[in-house]
Write a protein that binds this DNA or RNA. Structure first.
Lengths: 235, 235
DNA sequence: ACTAAAAGCTATCAATTGATACATATTCGA
DNA sequence: TCGAATATGTATCAATTGATAGCTTTTAGT
């Protein structure tokens, strides 16, 4: 599977404005946004290879060459999706992560660290499982984790590694340690990965629990279980 | 994506012996096994749609029509893989699961239940992460969980549901309950899903921990974290 | 050794898919 | 209003892919 880089692809292409078109035309940016939104959904549902450009174009309500025009091709569109997700995720999580980092740099008590970790996990659960648009982002990222695709490094450096590191730091502080040990990182990884029970494995989980969905009261049950796990860390 | 049923596919085909060929020819069964083995690996790595029949044929060292000859087509081969996995998994886990069930039916003490759950998790970790052939099976199943493909029902009924149910039963008993409550099932799901940190998300985990692999001493660290989680259940 | 069944192989087809050449339409600054 | 930049559309290509028709080779029973 050859995935040409977005830049490389656009060298052979003609006028394609990969970033936002300069002028701000009436319909131009609109089509670009619709394509990106459609691509997010289709890529999330089918992965890079499974998604077809025709599917995306149809869902976006544009014709096929529009994808090349705006993103240089399928690979460029995929990368643009990853960057879009990165931006949106950071917008949502930045305050919380920055707050946790600052608190860790200052003197955060073990109990405070534990409380913060609970909040982080609840927010993460809301985002990844809550039925909002972030659910699509999570599905996209989950595929990328498995496929080791073109966006892996980007998402790893900017999202996953910082996220796990903060969680590991909070765990370490909750246990009264000065810095995160490998065991803390393992616990952080296990904790975050357990969310996949209702993410990637949701069909199994819902069927097994005889739930129609994972909203409302049932979401509260999930969060309660997560909080309980945090509560018991190191005790 | 149209996936014809294996049987349907074989109606139009000619002499294809989907189950083991009658006679027991010298080379016949050998080729069939090689195809199945190759298909397991390729499907696990690329998913149903991502895998190509040519890839499988090449890895198996056979020509393309051999796939149709023995399995009726790509869809039939996929189903055969699922059944093969089911069989192999059950062979490995049956004793443990049956033992746990029997113990639950008899009077198992909370501490005994907890110890048994630890063993189950360690065995599961060895299978899913230990680098053996079962790792390929796990990858195959993980894709099926996400894609909700043709083998979903089969694997759910015969593998996932019984497995989670046993784990939930052990958790319930460990907590001194008489039967598994929904919260116990949730905990069981979270516990098992956390293994995906070193399954589907292994590249991320290894990079983050700066590990070359997850074997030997490092596997012990993972198991220790899992056992610790079980140890803290309900405490 | 002979025959029919079983197994294996080459060549090719039709459908799908990503890409793009090329024509047309729209927008906006002058 | 004119023209260049921008945007959208149609038609088509070449590569990939699953499938299979038809031929050859091997095997097992006699």
């Amino acid at each position: 599977m050859v995935r040409r880089d977005q830049e490389t692809a656009r060298v052979t292409a003609d006028p394609a404005p990969s970033s936002e078109p300069a002028g701000g035309y009436r319909k131009g940016g609109e089509a670009r946004r619709r394509i990106l939104e459609a691509a997010l959904q289709v890529f999330a549902a089918a992965g890079f290879k499974g998604a077809t450009t025709r599917q995306i174009a149809e869902l976006a309500g544009v014709n096929l060459p529009a994808l090349k025009y705006y993103f240089g091709g399928k690979a460029g569109l995929y990368l643009a999706c990853a960057e879009e997700i990165l931006g949106r995720y950071q917008t949502r999580m930045l305050d919380m992560v920055a707050g946790a980092r600052a608190a860790l740099d200052a003197d955060l008590s073990p109990d405070q660290a534990r409380a913060r970790l609970k909040t982080v996990m609840e927010t993460l659960a809301d985002m990844m499982l809550g039925g909002g648009e972030a659910e699509v982002w999570s599905a996209f990222m989950l595929r990328e984790v498995g496929e080791q695709g073109a966006a892996f490094d980007l998402l790893y450096e900017r999202l996953w590694a910082p996220g796990v590191e903060v969680a590991a730091g909070l765990i370490a502080r909750a246990l009264g340690e000065t810095a995160a040990r490998p065991a803390d990182r393992i616990q952080a990884l296990l904790l975050i990965s357990s969310l996949s029970a209702f993410g990637a494995a949701r069909p199994v989980a819902l069927k097994l629990l005889d739930w129609p969905d994972a909203r409302g009261e049932r979401m509260s049950d999930i969060k309660a279980a997560l909080v309980a796990q945090v509560d018991r860390l190191g005790r």
